[in-house]
Design a protein around this nucleic acid. Structure first.
Lengths: 121, 121
DNA sequence: ATTAGTATTAGTAATTATTACTGTTTATAT
DNA sequence: ATATAAACAGTAATAATTACTAATACTAAT
């Protein structure tokens, strides 16, 4: 993967926030640095960075969001303000348990807690 | 919510399978019973049935799927064949733990195990 | 340093899943 | 039976994302 100014800018934007930004949000930010950057460029690079394991994608309903934190972790999604915050939940022997009981080889565990965050009553 | 033949057909289709069908799949099935049914009707009724708590929606990446099983449970998604199979994972004191440690009021827990199901090596 | 080759880009068109609109049909309470 | 509003079919619109294309810009080899 050859260097490009656009990709480096996009990577820096994702790494600069804990808000798990969407492609649109990254695009809006990237335009401040590179005014004529294309939305397609943002999507293509987010995908490439994801494929390379440099960032990861998380699914928020039908919307893709991106996360610089590649450590295994989970998310709390607030239905009031829409925020998505990291949380580390213990799921130690989950993979083994599922392998033994269902012969299903777990490669990834996606846990999202839906609810109301501490900003609201 | 007034009776409608279309909605009843759609409900029966969702209740007839464990495959967690998408709107498109339900539409294809519904057309066999009601050839001129509209895709919009399928979407509208899936939404209504969900809002009424008669079925529930689960998110498979960016695709919405529907599930007649309203018991709290989780899913195993096979990356090889795309199947989505029910699994009940223990997460007993999760809500209390998260409430105490993060002051986050959990209303719903979404867990998807990504991996390879027992149909493949 | 110049060139050649190809990855990457901007801009635009196309696709996919889903929702909104509109005039017509249909369930159901009176 | 009739009125009323919910629901419908058909179609257009939207949102998120991907694909296409001709021009641009890295970078490795001359």
């Amino acid at each position: 993967m050859r260097y490009s100014h656009q990709r480096e800018t996009i990577r820096e934007i994702v790494f600069s926030t804990n808000s798990h930004p969407s492609a649109d949000w990254v695009y809006a930010r990237a335009k401040k640095a590179i005014p004529n950057i294309s939305l397609g460029t943002v999507y293509r690079n987010l995908k490439q960075l994801t494929d390379q394991g440099i960032i990861r994608v998380i699914h928020d309903g039908s919307l893709a969001r991106y996360d610089w934190n590649k450590e295994p972790h989970d998310h709390m999604k607030c239905t009031t303000c829409g925020s998505m915050v990291d949380i580390k939940l213990p799921n130690g022997n989950l993979k083994n348990m599922v392998k033994n009981q269902h012969n299903f080889e777990v490669s990834d565990v996606e846990i999202t807690l839906i609810g109301k965050c501490n900003k609201h009553d």
